[in-house]
């Protein structure tokens, strides 16, 4: 780790200002990606702006058909929330499968979504559930939010305040973990809202994406078998020492099929 300046603002405005004024400022939420990167000297921000003391960023509320989760809400809070378990059990289960207890006790939903790691779990839920990302400046639809490898629609100084998840009629998340890190080699989130179905895949490409062919097939028949034969091309799949592109493409089908079967109950 290199030396850096540490700030602990009380408001998002102050936080945005501090980042803007810093030479190379970074927001920190749970720090589960940023801190290890800094320790390995792979990241060297001049200033760290900690959102821990900013009021109004934590907590879970359910109103009508929407679950709202504050950006600084930890994974363990989502995992164990009775309200989330009741409204969107698949979301609570997903949160409970992130990393290990240490990570879940520190890591936050806002941090995960803003970081947009291609193998993170939460982006699959945000896209699969057609969530809305509420920031200090606007509301961004999930379909517009994730734009690339560790890239999002967030502008400089824009801070996530909360994420609004519509409550689906049925949903499930299935992932196949990378053997060393436990991150998703492929994760599939399937959700049904009435006749509409959304399928979001994480871990496979440079960022989370939907699979329209699977969504159509599932809208016609909501069962695992309906998509068992839908294969994706592997030319834009990621390839690394743990998982070749063709294996990833294959896992997309397997994980989506299993998620659909689970959601269909």
């Amino acid at each position: 780790m290199y030396a850096f300046n540490y700030h602990r603002p009380k408001s998002t405005d102050e936080a945005a200002k501090l980042v803007a004024e810093a030479e190379d400022g970074k927001l920190i939420a749970g720090g589960m990606t940023l801190l290890p990167s800094m320790k390995l000297r792979l990241a060297a921000p001049s200033d760290i702006v900690d959102l821990a003391a900013v009021e109004g960023l934590r907590g879970i509320t359910v109103s009508g058909k929407t679950v709202t989760i504050g950006a600084m809400t930890r994974h363990v809070d989502v995992q164990t929330s009775a309200e989330v378990k009741k409204a969107i059990p698949a979301l609570a289960a997903l949160a409970g499968g992130i990393g290990d207890p240490s990570v879940r006790n520190r890591g936050t939903i806002g941090g995960s979504v803003a970081n947009a790691d291609p193998a993170a779990d939460y982006p699959a839920a945000v896209l699969g559930l057609n969530a809305t990302v509420e920031t200090t400046k606007r509301k961004i639809a999930a379909d517009d939010f994730f734009t690339g490898l560790f890239e999002t629609a967030l502008e400089p100084g824009e801070i996530i305040k909360a994420i609004h998840f519509p409550v689906p009629d049925a949903a499930a998340y299935e992932k196949f973990p990378q053997p060393a890190s436990g991150f998703a080699m492929v994760g599939a989130f399937v959700a049904r809202f009435g006749k509409d179905v959304r399928v979001a895949i994480t871990g496979a490409k440079d960022h989370v994406f939907r699979v329209p062919d699977m969504e159509k097939a599932l809208a016609a028949k909501f069962s695992g078998d309906a998509i068992a034969e839908i294969k994706l091309p592997d030319d834009d799949m990621m390839s690394d020492i743990h998982c070749s592109a063709d294996y990833r493409a294959h896992l997309v089908t397997v994980m989506a099929k299993r998620a659909a079967a689970k959601a269909a109950g």
Partner: peptide, 24 residues
């Protein structure tokens, strides 16, 4: 089962030098 150690044959670098890649 899990301990997959990889040296890059082109560069000679150990590609599995952290627990993110070296599976215990």
């Amino acid at each position: 089962l899990t301990e997959y150690l990889v040296y890059d044959e082109e560069t000679g670098q150990l590609l599995t030098g952290t627990f993110m890649d070296y599976g215990m």
